[in-house]
Simulated assay, not measured.
Amino acid sequence: MAEPVISIEPISDELILAYRASGMKRGNSGGRALEWAFGRDSASFAVARHDGRIVGISGYIQNRVQLGHLTGNAVQAVDSFVLDSMRGKGVFTRLARAYDEHAVRSGTDLIWGFPNDNAAPAWFGKLGWHNHRQVPFLIKVLRTGFFCRKLGLPLDFPLTMDRDQRLCPVKEIGDWADLLWEQTSPRIGVGVIRDRDFLHHRLFAGPQADQYRVVAAADDGAPSIVATRQTDKHGGKIAYLMEALGGASMKALLKSELGRMAAQGVEIVLAWSFPWSPNYHVLRNTGFLPMPERFRPIRIWFGSAPKTAAASPANQSGQWYLSYLDSDTV
């Protein structure tokens, strides 16, 4: 049988149909979700075809990233799909290598992402990604119900002393967000640039925008932001702390949102934060704890593959800033 033909392509109606047929969650969200995630960049996908039919897809989201004192361009590997009939033939690895070669030719500084258990051996083994191990999960327990149900106990009461200050959510991201990033970024080595454009796109322009709540202290010289998303998942009512960044006002914003969510029945809040992140100590001071690996709802690995010398800090410890805004699924 002839080898599949690999090409680098933008989004198209053909790819949207292939996504829908693949069963991948993003495909079920429709064309608008795909266009929001990938835009109209001319090189968002590595595509494998056999006899003219799409048999494999590997998708990459474009990012602007901070690399020390430099600004670079990166792609986040997010989706991979190979037809059942083509599995075991090296198609996944060929797709990834083809995009890797394209990234080098086009001057992309960095490829990075969160491979699952199935993809991790290829990314970290065959493709040589640096393994940062699992993402840095933190957890804050707001109510007893989540864990009591697992023990068969009919108990549910709040565990937090935080109180809802009835903050009004912001309806848009203003110029204050650029000041927020300007003040925060010196304490970040490597990470996606969280300026006004990024925050607007990620929180207000996407298909899940109505599921995020954003509060901010925007009127002083040291702005802050806290963004959350509530959902029923993992057998309970949980929330994701999408982002918490800023100055002295961030802690008050966060405590108010924790109190509000507890009053609404949210049982646990999940966050991502490394110990060296600028928000880590505030999160710990408000009751977030590192989640032991055996209790994590899902295993998510984190890896990076610098393609230029400027991106070499991406493989070093103590450099990355991550939050749930970096997750392409939450």
Results as ranks from 00 to 15, higher is better:
P10C: 13
E35H: 14
V78N: 08
R40W: 15
S85F: 01
I16M: 09
R49T: 11
N73L: 14
I57Q: 10
V65W: 01
L70Y: 08
D51H: 07
R26A: 07
V55S: 01
V82P: 04
Y60V: 09
W36L: 11
S29T: 09
S12Y: 08
H50S: 05
R64C: 06
G23D: 09
P10I: 12
V55L: 03
R40L: 15
G23C: 05
Q76K: 14
S22Y: 12
G59H: 00
D13Q: 14
V65T: 07
H69C: 11
R64I: 02
L34G: 08
A21D: 11
G31I: 00
S58W: 12
S85Y: 04
S58V: 00
F45D: 03
R40Q: 15
M24E: 05
A48R: 00
I61P: 00
I16Y: 01
S12H: 08
R49G: 05
R64Q: 10
S12Q: 06
R32D: 11
R64Y: 07
G72P: 07
M86C: 04
D13K: 13
D79W: 02
F38C: 06
D79V: 05
I57A: 11
G30M: 03
S22C: 13
G90H: 07
R49D: 08
P10M: 11
T93C: 09
V75N: 13
N28W: 03
S85K: 11
F45T: 03
S22F: 06
R53K: 14
M86K: 00
D84T: 03
V75K: 14
G90I: 02
D51S: 09
K89M: 13
R40V: 11
Q66A: 13
D51V: 05
E9L: 11
A46F: 03
D84L: 03
R26N: 04
R49M: 02
D41K: 08
R32Q: 13
Y19Q: 09
A74Y: 07
S58R: 12
D41M: 01
A43I: 00
R32V: 09
A21W: 10
M86Q: 10
D84G: 13
Q66E: 08
A33G: 09
P10D: 10
A48Y: 00
G56H: 02
L70I: 01
A46L: 02
Q66S: 13
G72E: 01
L83C: 07
S22E: 08
G52A: 03
A74R: 07
F45Y: 10
G59C: 02
G88I: 05
R20W: 02
Q62S: 10
D13H: 13
N63G: 07
L70F: 06
K25I: 06
A37M: 10
D13N: 15
G30K: 05
F45W: 08
